[in-house]
Design a protein around this nucleic acid. Sequence first.
DNA 1: TGACCATTCGAACGTTCGTTCGGATAACAT
DNA 2: ATGTTATCCGAACGAACGTTCGAATGGTCA
Lengths: 202, 202
Amino acid sequence: MVMSTFDTRLERLQTIAARVFAEKGYHPTTMRDLARETGMSLAGMYHYVSGKDELLHSIQRRCFTEVLQGAEAALAEVSDPSERLERFIRHHITFFARHMSEMKVLSHEAESLSGDRLATINALKRRYVAMLSRLIGDVCDPDGCEVDENVASYALFGMMNWIYTWYDPAGAVSPQALAGQFTRLFLNGLTASTAAPVTPGG
Amino acid sequence: MVMSTFDTRLERLQTIAARVFAEKGYHPTTMRDLARETGMSLAGMYHYVSGKDELLHSIQRRCFTEVLQGAEAALAEVSDPSERLERFIRHHITFFARHMSEMKVLSHEAESLSGDRLATINALKRRYVAMLSRLIGDVCDPDGCEVDENVASYALFGMMNWIYTWYDPAGAVSPQALAGQFTRLFLNGLTASTAAPVTPGG
DNA sequence: TGACCATTCGAACGTTCGTTCGGATAACAT
DNA sequence: ATGTTATCCGAACGAACGTTCGAATGGTCA
């Protein structure tokens, strides 16, 4: 893929901005912070981006599009429901680990946009959520699950997206291992036909 | 509990501030926003609070202290490990549902403080995390779990804390029902001695 | 009544923010 | 060489921010 000088520098700006947004949050980050980190001048950045919110939007859109495409590719030609769900989890976690900054910005700054910008990101989010809901539905299909499929879907997303608050991909637990543990935890919890919880009330 | 006029109005300011922080985020919220919502004047609020960050700090400290005390009370005089874990989950979820704004501020604005203010909140957080880790360890104690206890702990916190992004306590799923589903999902996933996931790699 | 303290607030201060402006420099086609 | 466009930036603008100041209330006790 050939890339113009413009596109190359725009991508560099987006990557560095994602890192700084992840480190100190979108709102506390100033355009002057980004100028310092990129080595560009304050005014010079506006040649590549129309403003701070478009910068956030482009980071989120690019990242979410890649997640979606990657997930679809990961499921291609796999038919077993449990294995499809596992592939989805494994892809999400390993992608997250490879793009920590962007995924943190995607998870944590979900409400930092507004209007059309927010709407386009939310459209991508709905597709992704629907994708997981269908996967879970297929796993539960034969004999039904004890757990509501929507609740299960959000529970899994919470489990996975929360990692930006604690997980270090370079630490003791590898992304592949983490994906395996999450898969065990969730898939066993979802399909276990064992005892109900100790106290009724659900 | 008798309360001075000062304390009553301070509490009202904190409650309203928690709601606004939850709605539009800590950084985008201005002191003028809070003045409008409380009906106080801009300068008048500074009679009750030394500044915006102390306001956030006091909200987080009060909420976290209550969560800790409530969790300890919920576990008192219960000895069965699984039931203790279930009580912890049930308390966390129902407390979250009763104090949505404060808990969202606690979960989402974890990095919005700095220095000593951040340190005191993180100290409370460590106590709470250690509490859950021990509960999980006790459940796994007899014959060990397939899942790392730290990973399981963070997975459960993610599952539970993520609800501020989607859950409506007044909606179709009651807090008690949600707690039951999370307990089923997590406890079954943790203790299931069934098959390993489809693909090895963990 | 007068002294004291808690409470309230309009107005302003100094700073920082996102963004823009006008022009400089570089690259390239004609 | 000349015109055209892409790239870059020092300087500034207007707005909004958190906070403070000085004074005005209102209640309490001597």
